[in-house]
Design a protein around this nucleic acid. Structure first.
Lengths: 341, 341
DNA sequence: TTGAAAGCGCTACCAT
DNA sequence: ATGGTAGCGCTTTCAA
């Protein structure tokens, strides 16, 4: 790690104070009201052209920037959409698209990092910011949290997760179906003894558990069986698992996602296990790397809703907070069959 | 894509109003001042235990949540550290760590999505939020932007990028050195005609250009030559490049990063090019996948500063805004030699 | 066309 | 120990 040295601290000079609209008014020789009218282009009031120019010049000269907190305090509401940030790469492109779409609808999107706080604490922290809408993915928000947010003026709370939360709109992204597709596919290809990789990394449980459950459901009532395979994202762990592979007697594995699939497949191949002849391997998320492996990796492709659609849901909910919560299943899982199964 | 249907909009009921500290005071039968004292645990004032209880109960009953904007308006400052969000996976773990560390120092970290706005517009938008510090990575912030932020009360502006910006603290993460290490390594291994992959994806330029320049510098004044290889992150593009590989007459390639290296290496191997005998391949970023390739991928490992160090820099800068801007080179690049070179 | 002033929710100073 | 109140920066109604 690079160390950043701690320099001696010289005494700091008095910081210049931040210009306010009153300063602009003073410099322009008008009232604060006039400044507000000019800078906000208030249509209901006509300000003479010379006055407008003087105000603009004064604002420019002082480097005036309006104070968002003061504005929204006065207005009694904001256009802030709060998104407690999840660090899941799977969603990152989706979230980016969403932010863009919300920006077009004139919302200010803010990601707030409060991963650490326990459930209702987090909701309180978010509520302090008085967002007009909250978009929270994953778990960690219960009905109580939703209630706190709503009582604090949030006009829409939308959850992205496996199951709906009382009082909130729900975008159901049920990863159970991902596992289910994988299980059905493997069974249809004649595989019967199916392993399912469950990453040991914390924070992946919210995905890996439903995926495992989906495979179980797919195999229930058939002659197939499911074996849970804990695995850290680590070469040695993979080699260790591969070493006892033949003892496990599995003929297929759903490797949680493409990255774990790559890890495991390499370890299996290094251990002399032929893929797909001896063991079929399927991943998920349809990453580019799967196409580059040999054999090419079969995978479960996940289709998320467009950012535009979701932005419109948020906007609709904000405009009509009284409407009953919407529920949408927005995770389309489809198997991409390549060579590894 | 999944379409979200647009339901009919029933008329919305009047929303209950949000409880304020005045409401709590009324219910508890005390003044607003007392409420503030109790809820903030103000040490300078002693409030009797029964009163404290009544206030807490009233707050609980009403579901009172303080209004952050009102509070910071009154206080004249906030503890908000603003991080205009970059979507670069390379940094994501680093940024996460940083957020955590800043959280421990009692800052509120907020990521603001304003990728779209032109330079100084963005700075204005950030300034409206009156953050106590701004941490901006990449380019897109000039001296004028820094000035706007400082005049709006930001006590620290820290840039993460290739070169310092006037008036701001700088964490110099110069990717030029990444390319330089790669170039030196390849030359030392006896390679002379070196290709450098330059991704066609926009937004990667800020990394790929310096990396290319670094290779050029490493080869300058030697008997080696550098060839620029534009490449989209796409199998067909890679196959196309591989098809004309022998015509290019290169004996080594720095593939921008490990992912592009994997893409290109696969295409080359499919085209019968032996690695490393005919062509050496080196990536960068030291991703797990490089270790899983055969031959194992040589790479340039990048060491970023710990979140704690950076958080301390921010804290120091906030406490002493008058101190001269610090400059730190915080990108340690080292070659990890494996089998592909 | 422009200005005076109230008030958004909160905290901290000064009284009592 | 508790309350009254000024004022943070802004918008908007009402009056001139």
């Amino acid at each position: 790690m690079v160390q950043i040295p701690k320099p001696a601290a010289p005494p700091s000079p008095a910081p210049r104070s931040v210009p306010t609209s009153a300063d602009v008014a003073r410099l322009a020789g008008v009232s604060r009201a006039t400044v507000s009218y000019v800078l906000n282009n208030t249509r209901a009031v006509r300000i003479s052209e010379p006055t407008r120019r003087r105000v603009h010049e004064a604002a420019e000269e002082l480097g005036y920037v309006p104070h968002a907190a003061a504005r929204s305090l006065r207005a009694g509401h904001s256009r802030m959409v709060l998104m407690p940030a999840p660090a899941i790469p799977l969603y990152s492109r989706f979230l980016e698209e969403l932010q863009w779409a919300l920006g077009l609808l004139d919302y200010t999107v803010v990601q707030h990092a409060t991963a650490s706080l326990p459930g209702d604490e987090a909701a309180r922290a978010w509520a302090e910011l008085r967002p007009v809408a909250v978009l929270v993915s994953g778990v960690g928000l219960g009905p109580a949290g939703v209630s706190v947010l709503k009582r604090s003026g949030a006009r829409a709370v939308v959850t992205l997760g496996p199951e709906p939360v009382e009082g909130a709109h729900a975008l159901l992204m049920d990863h159970e179906s991902v596992g289910h597709r994988a299980g059905v596919h493997l069974h249809a290809r004649g595989r019967r003894r199916i392993g399912v990789v469950v990453p040991e990394e914390r924070g992946l449980d919210m995905f890996s558990r439903p995926r495992l459950a989906g495979v179980r459901r797919a195999l229930r009532g058939t002659d197939g069986s499911v074996t849970e395979l804990p695995l850290g994202y680590d070469e040695r762990a993979a080699a260790h698992l591969a070493a006892r592979w033949r003892d496990l007697g599995l003929d297929a594995v759903f490797a949680y996602n493409d990255e774990y699939a790559m890890l495991l497949m390499r370890a299996l191949q290094d251990g002399g296990v032929r893929i797909p002849e001896e063991t079929a391997v399927i991943g998920a998320d349809d990453l580019m790397l799967g196409r580059l492996l040999r054999p090419r990796l079969s995978t479960v492709h996940i289709d998320l809703p467009s950012g535009r659609d979701l932005a419109e849901l948020v906007d609709r909910a904000v405009r009509d907070p009284g409407a009953p919560p919407e529920r949408h299943t927005v995770l389309d899982a489809t198997v991409v069959h390549r060579e590894s199964t």
